[in-house]
Design a binder for these strands. Structure first.
Lengths: 225, 225
DNA sequence: CCAAAAGTGTTCCGTCTACACCCATGG
DNA sequence: CCATGGGTGTAGACGGAACACTTTTGG
């Protein structure tokens, strides 16, 4: 702490955004093909450089908003990635963020406009730079948190069936869950409200729709499985 | 992804290191007084700027090594802090790291050389910039992980008593733990080996010393409470 | 002999797990 | 009427929480 700032080196700082969705049975990620050299046309997360007038968090929000047209999404920092040679184009330190979105709210024209594709985790190709590691770190983080924070609802429409909710947990945790035990647990969480709406798209007899009570959660932000 | 890197702004990137120790009953952090303007002489974490030839992780290791003379410490990234005005001296994006050390291995002359002091979490003064937030985020992270990763042993000597180990858990979780239940749990973790050494410093009759079997843990890195 | 810390088991209760059948409906 | 997905209960195992007294020994 004895020198002045100006004696030190500056670096490019970027954000990379891992946008997670849920296709009904698998977790998927929005990736694109890189539009610039080096690595042009390689699969890549979508990212952007941090601008002088915005925080790093704001940069991530801006990139995600450009990409999805959506704001107020659930977003979380995954971590900073700073290996010297991580980017073949130069020394860039990148901060990864993940976002969870409901794919039904997402305007598919934006996806096409940016040439993005939804890829499930199992089908993930090799991505540019250390982006595979970022996705891996992000999914591990979500896996750790999904039982103590209400993440799953961000991947579903406002009104969802218990079967859909269970499929989210199965996809994130990558294991089968017993239907009766799952529903028993859900019913004793009073943040998950039964509604009187019925979904008829998936079954002949219809399934009860539920919703997550965000207002109540804001007041008392505790959530357990 | 349509511009060249060189059109973008570069930033100073620093690391800030949160060095945790354990004084026998409380968790404490090594802090100093800032040696440079702005904020000269304010309490602060110890940090440093990232150099061109090192990764961000390496920068953190370098700073911690300078400060403690120790290497191969348990270290973990806490997160990137990138608010525009976080540092009054200019736009600096900082990546926080925490390290856990055994204070008995630490050369107190180094502490004096750098003018550092150990401060317990309860007595933490207001620190420079967003350093209080970093410490807070770090302790929350440790609290979440202490039951699923063998963190606690990094705060203790190689040989430790079960009472000492319990005190670490109590300090981190900030709550009393039942002695009999704690010891019952410990005894069924076969990574924690009883030795035939006895510690006589704390009690007339002496207490059995234990050690953590790192070799075994490397082979099968699972740990539960 | 006494102060101080080490060490030790049992019971209870709540939670998690395993498991299989009937229902309602639209086509 | 039948295929499809929705919905429901119970019993046993397991793990966590509460709880108090005896032992050792150096001074």
């Amino acid at each position: 702490m004895t020198e002045f700032y100006s004696q030190h080196t500056k670096y490019y700082v970027s954000v990379d955004c891992i946008i997670f969705g849920f296709d009904g049975s698998k977790i998927e990620v929005l990736i694109g093909r890189r539009q610039m050299d080096p690595g042009r046309s390689e699969f890549s997360l979508y990212g952007g450089f941090v601008r002088p007038d915005e925080s790093v968090d704001d940069a991530a929000r801006r990139v995600v908003n450009d990409l999805t047209g959506m704001s107020n999404l659930y977003m979380r920092q995954v971590g900073a990635y700073g290996d010297v040679d991580r980017d073949p184009g130069g020394r860039v330190i990148s901060v990864a963020y993940c976002a969870l979105i409901n794919v039904r709210d997402y305007d598919d024209r934006l996806r096409q406009k940016y040439g993005l594709v939804w890829i499930t985790l199992d089908d993930m190709p090799r991505l540019y730079s250390d982006h595979n590691r970022m996705i891996n770190d992000a999914i591990m983080q979500i896996r750790r948190r999904i039982n103590t924070q209400p993440l799953s609802f961000n991947l579903l429409p406002e009104y969802f069936t218990l079967t859909q909710l269970q499929h989210v947990y199965e996809a994130v945790l990558n294991k089968k869950i017993d239907k009766r035990n799952f529903r028993k647990r859900i019913k004793q969480i009073d943040l998950i409200k039964q509604t009187n709406r019925i979904d008829h798209t998936m079954s002949r007899s219809g399934a009860r729709l539920y919703r997550f009570d965000r207002e109540k959660y804001e007041k008392d932000p505790t959530f357990k499985l």
